[in-house]
Design a protein around this nucleic acid. Structure first.
Lengths: 219, 219
DNA sequence: GAGTGAAACCGAACAGTGTTAGGTAAAACT
DNA sequence: AGTTTTACCTAACACTGTTCGGTTTCACTC
């Protein structure tokens, strides 16, 4: 076969198949040959659409994180803006846990992510945070989200799960533990997020700037 | 050559060489053949000492995180205990940033890490936190540390760095930016940690239990 | 001291990886 | 109708982690 009558491959189609493999079998099971096979095609053909595997994965990551909600920054309530953003971010990561290493390992020219970082920064500055604080808070909130997803209890990627097992031996039956672990992940994240935001409030009172001076100054 | 008069390889020696490669050239440049070459040996010989590359990396990770300071939990001050632990944890990760994906991707039967998780949990419970909270707080603190290390500004693994560049164009000269980025990482982490701990204080007052009832109950 | 078994290395190979070069036929455009 | 581009192909390259079987030397037992 040479060129088919109607194209078999497309960028969205490739992304979809790639994500399906990652979700189903794990990130390490995604190879270009396996992906090609899933699409009834030879591996080399994929390179007509994506220049490298990395570029493909970056694109998939972009798609997965593209529905994160930063809308609540618009009405000047930084606390609500941050909380909504963080929860929606966490939810996006939780939907495709196997893809997490890709997302966590930095932005690969992901325009959507950049635009959102800008909204977060702008929202915080607009609410009265000094630009430098806005940067730190945006980053810190992401620390919580990414860290929580990476070190998830329920995925077994947390040392505490073992301690927990030892201390509560009657929870060691796998199904009970999984159940409880998911709940602890959820509660732990909410506890951390709330404590963080609560702790930020007094800082805000100390460093807030009048709104008309809140524009970035170039430092 | 067959068996040498004095052994060339040893587990600590292999770990040291592996860590050197990771630190110098990056995690992805570490291959068994390259590691063997560095040790004047054939790749297959490494398998007499480590059964898999994964086991070796897990061991290296264990070594790197083995000096984390959990000593301050002993005198019942949970705040100081957490803060010291978190800072020392972060410092350990910062010393070998290229190894981070290995450390972040979960405990691979790393006994040291387990023992420390136990100290943290025990310290928090001993100070009066209910066991369930102790678990969540231990995990959450780690979220901050791991997240901060993973999404580091200075490593360019943070979207905010781009926003920052746009907003402060005079910082875009690479050396100035790197300088400032490291400082922001540091300040941002301290801000987040402090806010988190501050936010935890009122929760503690609400949920604290008398010390004699603080033993794990089995739920 | 001879014999035995384990230990520590080696060379060669297997099955897999991402990626590229060069070929072919159909589509799209001039 | 002729040309270029597109979208696929086969085959290969250079690499990866790992295993097999072999060789030599060490450490031990009788």
């Amino acid at each position: 076969m040479a060129r088919p009558k109607t194209p078999i491959l497309s960028k969205p189609g490739i992304r979809e198949a790639a994500l399906a493999i990652v979700d189903r079998d794990g990130l390490e099971k995604l190879s270009m040959r396996r992906l090609a096979q899933e699409l009834d095609v030879q591996a080399a053909s994929l390179y007509s659409h994506y220049r490298t595997k990395e570029e493909l994965l970056s694109d998939v990551a972009n798609e997965v994180t593209s529905h994160i909600d930063v809308s609540r920054f618009e009405d000047g309530d930084w606390r609500e803006g941050l909380a909504t953003w963080a929860r929606s971010y966490r939810a996006a990561l939780a939907e495709h846990p196997n893809l997490l290493p890709v997302i966590a390992s930095g932005p690969g020219r992901r325009e959507e992510a950049l635009r959102r970082a800008d909204v977060v920064h702008g929202g915080l500055v607009g609410a009265g945070w000094p630009p430098r604080y806005a940067t730190m808070i945006g980053a810190s909130t992401k620390y919580l989200v990414v860290g929580a997803a990476t070190q998830s209890f329920a995925r077994g990627f947390d040392d505490d799960v073992r301690v927990y097992q030892d201390r509560y031996p009657n929870l060691s039956q796998a199904h009970r533990l999984a159940e409880v672990a998911a709940q602890i992940d959820e509660d732990g994240f909410e506890l951390a997020l709330t404590a963080f935001l609560d702790g930020l409030a007094p800082v805000f009172e100390r460093v807030r700037v009048p709104v008309e001076d809140a524009e970035p100054s170039g430092e």
